[in-house]
């Protein structure tokens, strides 16, 4: 399970996850994920390109992190979801509360 945060520009950072966001995976990564996202003090673009599976535990983590970022007057956007991960996001209508787009460019366009 890998987590990497990188600055895109002065206002936006990319948080990339590599690995399964299921119950065991979230147990491993959640503390670092939330801390990295909120400490950046920027808009956070969560890259799910390298996530093969996402369960309700992962969605719970995304929602709680997005809320923390929102409370700090920034935004979180999810991009790169494919296959079963995109199907999962659709089933829970995540896009109603956190923007979900296909690419990083689309995420940045939303923040422009």
């Amino acid at each position: 399970m890998k987590l990497e945060i990188s600055n895109i520009d002065a206002h936006n950072a990319r948080l990339s996850v590599q690995g399964r966001l299921d119950t065991p995976g979230v147990d491993v990564i959640e503390t670092r994920f939330v801390a990295s996202a909120t400490a950046a003090a920027k808009n956070i673009l969560v890259d799910l390109t390298e996530v093969p599976i996402l369960t309700s535990m992962g969605i719970r983590m995304l929602i709680s992190t997005a809320r923390a970022i929102h409370n700090k007057k920034h935004r979180m956007i999810v991009f790169g979801a494919q296959g079963i991960v995109m199907e999962t996001l659709d089933h829970v209508s995540l896009n109603d509360v956190i923007p979900v787009v296909a690419t990083e460019a689309q995420a940045l366009a939303l923040l422009a």
């Binding site: 309700s56 929602i63 997005a66 809320r67 929102h70 209508s93 109603d96 509360v97 956190i98």
Partner: peptide, 11 residues
């Protein structure tokens, strides 16, 4: 229930 906003979303 379907959440209306990030503030009201309950996981």
């Amino acid at each position: 229930d379907k959440p209306e906003s990030i503030e009201r979303a309950k996981p």
